[in-house]
Amino acid sequence: MTATAPPATYSLVLPPGWVRIPLRDGTREALDEKVFRGIEEIPAGVPRDQGMAYRLHVRRKVDRMVEEARRAGGLDLYVPARVRSRTLMASSFLVSEIARDGDEPGDGYDDASVPGSGPQAELVLARLAADRRSGEAGELRLAGEAMAVRWEYLTVPDGSDPEVDVGCRHVDYVLPVPGDGGRWLAVSHSTAGDGDPGSAFTRALTDLFDAVMSTFQWS
């Protein structure tokens, strides 16, 4: 039987206004072209004399998100750009690669016995779904045509970060890379929404992320 080569990358269909920021190469160019150029027009509700302060706030916020995403081993960061509402800027998601090591997904299985797809991979996913995040267990869910584990949970500010003063709703997906049992992909979404993690608006943003994940494809 001929082995299937692992995919080199993935693809997603993004909603209008959302952009991909690569974190390994070309990050600054992507930020300047796709994000910072889009904040030259001040959104409605921001006083014109506060325009410069608003631009600096957005730059610092996005730069901080990029730095945190890089520390987390991220591959790509997705953010809304060229939008009128500052509230929507509180939503983003990160794609990162997880090497199967220690407590990572699939721990306890030999590489040879854990292919990136097939019944054995689904067993590992089922085992992983039992893990809890902020008290919430995962569930098996399709991301496009790929089987994944999905978690949805809330976090509240603990006072350790003065810039985080509202709760967030999170949705995480973990997928095995087909044909490579040592690599997994994590896609993590977080949003503060309108400041209320349980509001209809905030839930609508998580629904939008789930819709994006329904377009996931390996390439």
Score class of each variant (00 low, 15 high):
P178G: 06
D107S: 15
D180R: 04
D111L: 15
A44V: 13
T191K: 01
L12D: 09
R71T: 12
D111E: 12
A99F: 10
A69P: 09
T202Y: 05
L88V: 14
R55A: 06
V174Q: 03
R100N: 03
S160M: 10
Y78E: 05
D76W: 02
S91K: 03
A44S: 13
E136K: 07
G45E: 05
R203G: 10
A99G: 12
D161F: 05
S117E: 11
W218Q: 03
P115W: 04
P115Y: 06
M52K: 13
F201Y: 15
T4H: 13
T215I: 00
I21S: 02
P43S: 08
V46Q: 07
F201S: 06
S190V: 05
D161W: 04
R100I: 08
G106L: 08
G198M: 11
A72K: 10
Y54I: 09
T206A: 14
V149A: 06
P157E: 07
S214V: 00
V164K: 11
R127F: 08
Y10S: 13
A44Y: 06
V174E: 09
P7C: 07
L75P: 09
G198S: 14
A99S: 13
M65F: 14
Y54T: 05
E104I: 02
V166W: 05
V156Y: 04
L88F: 14
G102I: 06
D196A: 10
E104A: 15
G108E: 10
I39E: 00
A44W: 06
L154P: 01
G179W: 01
A143Q: 10
E33G: 02
L75M: 13
H170N: 10
D131Q: 13
R20N: 10
R24D: 13
K34Y: 08
E152C: 09
A200K: 11
P197T: 04
R71C: 08
G167I: 00
S134P: 01
D131L: 14
V212L: 03
